[in-house]
Amino acid sequence: QNVKAVASLGNFPYYLVSNNPKVKTIADFTEKDRIAVPAVGVSVQSRFLQYAAAKQWGDKEFNRLDKYTIAVPHPDATAALIAGGTELTGHFSNPPFQDQALANPNVHVVLNTYDLLGPNSPTVLFATEKFRSENPKTYKAFVEALAEAANFAQKDKGAAADTYIRVTKAKIDREALLKIIDNPQFEFTVTPKNTYPLAEFLYRVGAIKNKPQSWKDYFFQDTTPLQGS
């Protein structure tokens, strides 16, 4: 298939949050705790948790916390964490769910992915080489539109919020949405940041077979090459 990444979908910190006051760091989770993730072991949140575990206990212990993770959709996990009273005491999600959870005074941040890797691109757009080569006009138009949209959102957060609400018909309050996207750590951009440390880690622990020599090995380089990492 020769699947490669096309562009970053933005650089945003992901938070592992908890409603257990005893859990200050990932080392404080016990068998009594459960951490909600989108998919156990393979979601980007699970990989970040494994990266953090490897940093804490060494590569051989990278999956040490996997036994505490369960697959729960973000909306359900957020509701459970806010309500409390269940075994689910942790949730590794992304905006806006982490922000909704943190609005509850009983919920706190245990891990910020920016503390692990610095500003990074947790999600990327990808395509097959076949699609890219057979649909050059569509591919080019999409990539250019994505870059234009990212630039628009980065320069005018208010207009971006208005556009989002109008197009998606989301029920979210405009001020609440602005509060989320106006986070100075948020960067709307197609430029990937700090993807390589995670790629290199995945090779070290056997999740991928071939070691990339740089981030350019798994990103398409188009007419206007990305300047990433």
Rank of each mutant, 00 (worst) to 15 (best):
V3M: 11
K4V: 01
L9R: 03
G10I: 00
L16S: 04
V17K: 05
N20K: 06
N20A: 15
P21M: 06
K22A: 13
K24D: 12
I26H: 00
A27H: 10
E31Y: 08
K32S: 12
I35S: 02
A36V: 06
V40A: 05
V40L: 05
V42E: 12
A53R: 01
G58D: 02
G58F: 01
D59P: 09
K60V: 07
E61M: 04
D66F: 02
K67V: 09
T69Y: 01
T69V: 07
T69C: 11
T69I: 05
A71H: 03
D76R: 15
A77T: 06
L81S: 03
I82P: 03
I82T: 03
G85V: 06
T86Q: 08
T86K: 14
E87V: 09
E87C: 07
L88K: 07
S93V: 04
N94A: 13
Q100I: 14
Q100K: 10
N104G: 00
H108I: 03
H108M: 04
V109D: 01
L111I: 04
N112T: 05
N112S: 08
N112A: 03
L116D: 02
L117Y: 00
P119S: 10
T123W: 15
T123G: 14
T128Q: 08
T128V: 01
K130E: 14
S133H: 14
E134L: 12
E134R: 10
P136S: 07
Y139P: 04
K140V: 05
A141C: 06
V143T: 09
A145W: 03
E148A: 15
A150N: 09
Q154W: 01
K155S: 13
D156T: 07
K157Y: 08
K157L: 09
A160D: 02
K169A: 13
A170K: 14
K171P: 04
A176Y: 11
K179H: 10
I180M: 08
I181C: 00
D182S: 15
T189A: 02
T191Q: 13
P192H: 05
N194M: 05
T195L: 01
A199Q: 11
F201Y: 07
L202N: 09
Y203S: 08
R204E: 08
G206Q: 05
A207P: 07
N210T: 14
P212R: 10
Q213G: 10
W215P: 05
Q221L: 08
L226E: 02
Q227E: 12
G228W: 01
